[in-house]
Amino acid sequence: MTKNHEYVSLATLDAAIVMLKNIGREDDAKALLKSFESSQDAEFRQPERDPFGRSIGDSDAQII
C-alpha cells in the first residue's frame, strides 16, 4: 500500500488502519499512517474532497 500511495484514497487508508488495529497490529497501523503523512500532500487529507462523500472513522486517520 505504501509503494502505491498515489492510488490509495483517504477512505481506503482509513479502512486499512481500522483493520490493522482490529487484528492487534497497532504498530503497523502507526507505520502506515506515518508513511502516508510524509508522502501525501495536504489535498489528500481533506475528506470533503472525496467524490463519494465517504467519512473517515478512525481518529488517527482523521488527523494526518
Rank of each mutant, 00 (worst) to 15 (best):
I56D: 01
V18R: 04
L10S: 07
I56C: 01
P47Q: 03
T2S: 09
D58N: 13
I64Y: 14
S38Q: 15
Q46P: 02
R25E: 11
R25T: 06
A42I: 10
L20W: 06
A61R: 02
R54A: 10
I17G: 05
A61K: 04
Q62T: 09
D50I: 05
R54M: 09
E6P: 01
L20Q: 04
G24L: 00
K34V: 12
K3I: 10
L13Y: 11
N22S: 13
S35T: 07
A15F: 06
P51C: 03
S55D: 15
I17F: 03
Y7S: 10
L33T: 02
M19K: 14
G57C: 07
S59I: 12
I17R: 02
Q62K: 12
D58W: 05
Y7C: 10
R54T: 04
E48G: 03
I64T: 03
G24D: 07
D50Y: 09
Q46S: 01
S9Y: 05
S38L: 15
A15G: 10
G53Q: 03
G53L: 05
A61G: 08
Q46F: 14
H5K: 10
I63S: 13
K21G: 06
I56H: 04
E6G: 11
I63V: 15
Q62M: 13
F52T: 00
T2W: 11
R25A: 11
F36M: 00
L13G: 02
D50R: 04
T12E: 14
E48N: 06
A61Q: 06
D58F: 02
Q62L: 12
V18W: 05
L13P: 06
K3C: 07
E26L: 07
M1H: 12
A29M: 04
N22F: 01
L13V: 00
A31D: 01
H5I: 03
A15H: 08
S35P: 13
S35L: 03
